[in-house]
Design a protein around this nucleic acid. Structure first.
Length: 433
DNA sequence: TCTGGGGTCCTAGGACCC
DNA sequence: TCTGGGGTCCTAGGACCC
C-alpha cells in the first residue's frame, strides 16, 4: 500500500441531484440549474449533456432549445444545496479518519488505512451508502495523489461498467491513460496554461509528465511543477492537517450582477451598501476584522459603452463594524463612479483580515473616520460592537438580514430592482427526508 | 434584451531601507 | 551631482478551481 491513498468523492450533477431530491417527479427527466441572475447554466442532467449543452453556457442562448426538449429549468438555490452537501459530507466522514472537504460537492477521503484491504470494494460501499442514505449519486476516484484521484474520478463518471468507482492503483497501464488525457483536463492546468503548453507541443498529460522540472518551473511556476510531480505519483502535500476547526477565510467578497442596470450614483450605492453589510456580517461571524476594503463596479462585458473600475482603501485600523465600512465603501464608490454608464455588476472585497481578539486598539486609533480619538469615543465604539453582535445573532435566528443599518433606508431612490432575476423558482415541496 | 459568485495561491514590481 | 546592490514587505493582477 502506498503511504498515501486518496478517494476523491465527487457528486454527479450535484445541483440537479439536489433539485431531484425535493422534486421526485424529475427522476429521469432532463433538467438544468442556473447561476445567480439566471445567467448561466451551472448544472445539467445527463440528458442535457447529451444535447451538447456545455457547462457555463449563457441561458438566453439555449432557452428555446431547452424548451423544445422540455427541459426543467431551475434558478439556483444555494441554501438548499449547502444543506444537502452537509448531509453528504457527514455521511462520507463516517468512512474515514480524515476528510478534506474540497468544494460543495467534493471531498478527499484518506484511504491509507491498513484495515481496509480491498479499496475498490470499500469505495463501492461508500458510494452505495451515499446513494441510499442521502439520495445523491457520486463517483469515486482512488489514487496515491490528489491530482491522480481527480483524474480517476473523471474516469469513474464516464465508465459505465465500473459502478462509479475507478481505482488507479489497479489500473494496468497508467501511461496509456495519461496519453489519452488532454493536458487541459488535468486539475490545475487551465485554459491559458494549456494554450501555452500547446505551443511547445505538449498536448497530453503524459507529454506534461515527461517535461523537464526546471523548464516547468520556469514557465508554469511552482504550481505547475507540483502538478507534474503529482501526475508522476509523487504526493506534494500532506493531508489537510486540522479538520476540526474550519479554516478562517483570508478574504471575503460579495458581488452580484444586477437584475436591471443601475445608472446614477444612488442606484449604484444601494446594492453596494447591501454588499458591505453582508460581507461585514460574514467577517464578524468568523471573528475577524478587515484591514482593506475594495469596491468594484462595471458595465456589461458586452456593452458598447464599457467601463470598469476598482478602488481599494487601506484601513489604518482594521474594522468590522458596518458604519465604518459603509463610510469607506461610499467614499471609494464616489472616486470611481462615472455618470453615463449602465452598470451591471458591483462587488465588495474585504481582505487583509486579522483576528478580532488579537487586535490591540490604542487610544489614538479607535476609528478611522474620527481623527481626534478620545476615551468617550472608545466607549462608544465598544457599545457599538456589542450592539452589532446582538444584531448578528438576531439575524442568524431570523435566517436572514431582517435588521439592517439605517443607512440602507435613507436612500432617496430606493428601488431594489438591482436584485438578481429569479424567474425559474419552482414551488418548493416540503423536504421528505 | 439576456453571459455567475466566491474563493486560493503565486509572481512581478514598486517602495523603502541600509 | 553622481554613483550601487541587495534585502524585505506589500499589493495588484493573473491564473486557477468549483
Amino acid at each position: 500500500m502506498p503511504s498515501q491513498l486518496y478517494a476523491l468523492c465527487d457528486c454527479n450533477n450535484f445541483f440537479v441531484a439536489c433539485e431531484r431530491l425535493r422534486h421526485k417527479e424529475l427522476a429521469g427527466k432532463p433538467a438544468v440549474v442556473l447561476s445567480s441572475n439566471d445567467g448561466c447554466i451551472v448544472a445539467r442532467s445527463e440528458e442535457v449533456k447529451k444535447l451538447g449543452i456545455k457547462m457555463g453556457t449563457p441561458y438566453f442562448s439555449v432557452e428555446r432549445l431547452l424548451a423544445y426538449h422540455k427541459v426543467e429549468v431551475f434558478s439556483g438555490d444555494l441554501v438548499w444545496y449547502k444543506e444537502v452537501s452537509n448531509r453528504v459530507m457527514t455521511e462520507l466522514a463516517r468512512f474515514t479518519d480524515r476528510i478534506e472537504i474540497y468544494s460543495i460537492d467534493e471531498a478527499f477521503l484518506n484511504l491509507a488505512i491498513a484495515s481496509i484491504r480491498d479499496k475498490t470494494a470499500y469505495a463501492r460501499t461508500i458510494r452505495g451508502a451515499i446513494r441510499d442514505r442521502v439520495g445523491v449519486p457520486i463517483s469515486i476516484g482512488v489514487a496515491r495523489t490528489k491530482t491522480l484521484a481527480k483524474l480517476a474520478a473523471d474516469r469513474a463518471k464516464h465508465d459505465v461498467s465500473g459502478e462509479g468507482v475507478f481505482n488507479l492503483e489497479e489500473y494496468p497501464d497508467l501511461d496509456a491513460l495519461l496519453a489519452n488525457t488532454p493536458v487541459q483536463e488535468i486539475w490545475g492546468i487551465g485554459r491559458k496554461s494549456a494554450q501555452a503548453l500547446a505551443r511547445f507541443g505538449v498536448k497530453t498529460a503524459l507529454d506534461f509528465c515527461r517535461c523537464d522540472d526546471l523548464w516547468i518551473r520556469k514557465h508554469f511556476t511552482v504550481r505547475g511543477l507540483m502538478t507534474a510531480w503529482e501526475l508522476r505519483g509523487q504526493p506534494t502535500g500532506a493531508f489537510g492537517e486540522e479538520t476540526e476547526e474550519p479554516e478562517k477565510r483570508k478574504s471575503i467578497q460579495v458581488m452580484r450582477s444586477f437584475g436591471n442596470p443601475a445608472y446614477d450614483f444612488e442606484e449604484l450605492a444601494e446594492p453596494v451598501m447591501h454588499f458591505v453589510v453582508s460581507a461585514a456580517r460574514k467577517l464578524r461571524n468568523q471573528g475577524s476584522r478587515a484591514g482593506s476594503l475594495c469596491v468594484y463596479i462595471r458595465t456589461s462585458h458586452f456593452a458598447k459603452n464599457r467601463y470598469a473600475n476598482t478602488d481599494t482603501v487601506a484601513l489604518k485600523t482594521p474594522a468590522a463594524n458596518d458604519t465604518e465600512l459603509l463610510h469607506h465603501a461610499l467614499e471609494a464608490l464616489k472616486r470611481i463612479y462615472r455618470p453615463g454608464f449602465a452598470y451591471r455588476k458591483a462587488g465588495v472585497v474585504l481582505s487583509r483580515l486579522c483576528d478580532d481578539a488579537s487586535l490591540q486598539t490604542s487610544l489614538f486609533d479607535i476609528d478611522d473616520t474620527e481623527t481626534n480619538g478620545n476615551a468617550v469615543k472608545k466607549i462608544a465604539s465598544a457599545k457599538r460592537a456589542r450592539a452589532l453582535k446582538t444584531i448578528d445573532a438576531l439575524n442568524r435566528e431570523l435566517h436572514g438580514p431582517k435588521i439592517l443599518p439605517a443607512a440602507l433606508f435613507d436612500s432617496p431612490k430606493k428601488r431594489q430592482d438591482w436584485k438578481p432575476k429569479r424567474e425559474h423558482e419552482h414551488t418548493q415541496k416540503p423536504d421528505t427526508n
